[in-house]
Amino acid sequence: MKQILKWIGIIVVSVVLLPLVVIFFIYKKAVGKREYDPKVLDNLEEAAQDYVKKTAPLSDVDSRYKYIRLAQKALPAAKEIEVGEVEDKKIDGPGGKIGLRIYTPEADGPYPLMVYFHGGGFVTGSVQTTDAIARKLVKTTGYRVISVDYRLAPENPFPAAIEDAYATLVWISKHLTSLRAKSGEIVVAGDSAGGNIAAVVSQIATSKGAPNVTKQILLYPPVDIFSRDASVLYPSMDEFAEGYVLTKESLDKYFKLYLSGANDRKYDPLVAPIRSKDVSKLPAAFVATAEYDPLRDQGEAYAKKLKDAGVPVYAKRFEKVPHDFMSTPSVATDETFELISEFLQEKL
């Protein structure tokens, strides 16, 4: 009997405890050692200070991205932000199935439609990481929000994310009835890398004449090259290179992973929408930038380019917050949702 118990113990350790230990170390590697400069906290609002402490930069993106994804997918849903219904769905895409998460308001339809693209440098992130943002958009705007799990680099580098994003717009335009859409108009939105995707698909839809994208919401987007080279045009790349949520080093690594095998296309408008020669016919834009963000200057430059071309633009720099400030409850976050709602109602 003792021998049997001994073997049972060995099996339990091997089958149960050992995998848990492995998962623990994978998680620790995903979280990594987060470092920030305590002096930068003096520049930030209180909620942003706490956010920087918890999510200080991980520069070693290229060796950790798989582990980071595991940790992000384990995030709990933001169920305290109640909506009417949440449905996970898969549709056919150019590279296989595309995951969608569809958030429906509590009120009865029909609904105006918004497509949301998550951030994560085209390498990390998922519909799960922006679950709270999507839910809050539903609550504050009354839109039905369709969040897209597009393919990620480096396994699926550029243009995979863009292909999935546009394919989703086309699918939506063909399923307006089943989506209980109020009209054929579609609003595109996204944060960080997702803001880039929203800007790019706005340009594609405009040039093709379909689907009918009528507004774009761009939250602290990279709209030009987001590598070290960008410092020449955008001083904020150097000014906020370290110490906040996003670093110049991590941006450079994201850029290289995203453009793996396609570096010759770094100035292509499908990568850098600000490089488009004609933006005059693009939909109205809401552009939010963060004061302490290396991407700040290029986001503001894109807003200016659109405005100079005659596109209706509402642009605002949110003070005392870093990149990705929408991921944490704060005064700036609440104000952003309110302004987005007003923008959609054409009150701005």
Results as ranks from 00 to 15, higher is better:
R101H: 09
G299F: 00
A205L: 04
N43Q: 14
L251H: 04
M1R: 13
R101M: 09
K39V: 10
W7S: 12
K305H: 05
V331H: 14
L152H: 13
G243H: 06
D324F: 14
I26M: 08
T168F: 05
A165K: 05
Q345G: 11
A210S: 15
E346S: 14
V16T: 01
A47G: 11
K174Q: 14
T214C: 01
F325R: 00
D92T: 15
P94H: 12
G99W: 13
G95V: 14
K54I: 01
L152A: 10
A189H: 04
H175V: 06
L339C: 04
Y65L: 04
D149A: 13
E85D: 15
P269S: 05
A210W: 15
E346V: 10
I204L: 12
G120I: 06
V145K: 13
P110R: 10
K29E: 13
E87H: 10
G109C: 10
S231Q: 04
S183M: 11
Y314T: 13
L20P: 01
D297T: 14
D60L: 08
I98V: 15
Y292T: 06
Y244L: 03
I11A: 14
Y254G: 01
S183Q: 07
D191S: 12
A78K: 09
K6S: 12
V138G: 05
L218D: 08
G243K: 06
I23M: 11
T129M: 08
E249F: 01
G195K: 14
K347F: 11
P294D: 02
A284T: 04
R101F: 07
S207E: 13
K53A: 05
G310E: 04
R69P: 00
